[in-house]
Amino acid sequence: MSPLAAWQDAFAAGLRGAEHPLAAHPAFAVYRNTVWKGWIDALEANYPAIAALTGSDWTRAAAAAFAEIHAPSCPMLSLYGEGFADFLVEFPPAGLLPFLPDIARLDRGWTEAHLAADVPVLGFGSLAELDAGAMERTRCRLHPSARFAWFETTIPTLWLANRTDFEGGELLLDDRPEGLLLARPAESVEALVLDAAAFAFLDASRSGATLLDCAIAALATDPRAELGSLLGRLIGFGAFTDFIPIEPEPPHVPA
């Protein structure tokens, strides 16, 4: 190893608390503090609902523990913290707040939606252009900003309350399953609480299913689902970018 590389290894280890003559200088703390403050500030900023629910001190302590294991690999610190939700699952101080990892997943979803590619959303006109047989030959492409998940409790409602001007109050978590869709159809990220049928439709779209199979998935989840209004709601929200025609699969020819 070159002398410069060895020097940088020692300095970087000192930033993480290792003992070294360099790190013993009182001014070394300026570097250590700046680096850790940068990491922790970024995580606190990227997980605002966690900070709203647990307070700044708790969040910064959790962020420091996360940063010890996962320093950012990318200098765009708005993207730092992928994996924070999974980290919280194993983080003993979060044990009393078992909903935190799901809250963190939604904070992360917001970040990803916020920074996703700018692509026009699907308009209602495209829906009118579909002919009768198109349901089984077409699939909807999700907008690159679309992030959605299903929860067994009202995590979405709790998260929404903590991303707005929520001032404490009662905990809005109960045992009613709920989904949430986040997307950025224009400049700002929007949220839509999902019922089971809408989530099933989106989930099928994500796996590349045709419109027909998406509809079947929604109806299998809730036979009373009204498909027209469901699809209208999702298109109006900006969940999709376009309809993609699918070529029928060629008949299988045995070798």
Binding site: P3, L4, Q8, A12, Y31, V35, A42, A71, P75, L77
Partner: peptide, 18 residues
Amino acid sequence: AWRGAYHPDLLPFPRTRQ
């Protein structure tokens, strides 16, 4: 940036020939 980790600071080094 060093060994895959980004440190949000501007860190010093010995100004050697290397």
